[in-house]
């Protein structure tokens, strides 16, 4: 049990912070929409923080957080119009299970990603930086590069694909 303002409380916040990327990845996989994943991540964070007293320091934070996230996904789906959802319930469960397994490689891939980003061609790295760090829209990036937004979208896909290959190669296999 965590007492407010205690050292455990600080450790809990650090666990939450450290798992933001992993939770987002899990939610994005299940929802197939970045805005929806963002919304549900915020809701998940609120529940995690609200229920932090239920968490026992030293127990499996990831398992608990992913379980909370999964409940939030189900609640979110109930609020949505059917045609806004990407996956049927059955596929959702298949993906949820597989996503939890894939997440086991998150930390290792995160470490490799730094090297892989360094190996990108400078224009590609710049494109990723503008999209992810500066948060620029496809349209804004396209205007500055004399490209169409669709071409920027395709370029970003290809760069992500090459980073996936690089991370797997560094890991010496199907990481």
């Amino acid at each position: 049990m965590i007492a407010s303002g205690s050292r455990d409380s600080e450790a809990f916040v650090r666990l939450m912070t450290g798992h933001q990327g992993r939770l987002f990845g899990y939610l994005f996989t299940l929802l197939g929409d970045p805005d929806a994943a963002n919304d549900v991540l915020q809701e998940t964070n609120v529940v995690l923080w609200r229920d932090c007293r239920e968490f026992r320091p030293g127990s499996n934070f990831k398992a608990w957080a992913f379980r909370v996230a999964h409940f939030q996904v189900m609640a979110f789906r109930q609020r949505q119009i059917r045609d806004r959802l990407v996956f049927e319930d059955e596929m959702l469960e298949v993906l949820a299970s597989a996503a939890r397994e894939t997440d086991d490689a998150f930390a290792a891939r995160q470490e490799k990603l730094t090297d892989c980003l360094g190996r990108l061609a400078a224009p590609h790295r710049e494109l990723i930086r503008r999209r992810y760090t500066d948060g620029e829209s496809l349209e804004a990036i396209a205007r500055g590069r004399d490209m169409t937004p669709n071409a920027v979208m395709q370029s970003l896909f290809r760069i992500r694909h090459s980073l996936m290959q690089c991370v797997a190669r560094f890991a010496g296999g199907d990481a």
Binding site: A98, Q110, Y132
Partner: peptide
Amino acid sequence: YLDYCQMHALLASAHGVLH
């Protein structure tokens, strides 16, 4: 699809590195 979603999440978390 699972690997791709994870890569997007990794990049979204990589502000420090990209910065």
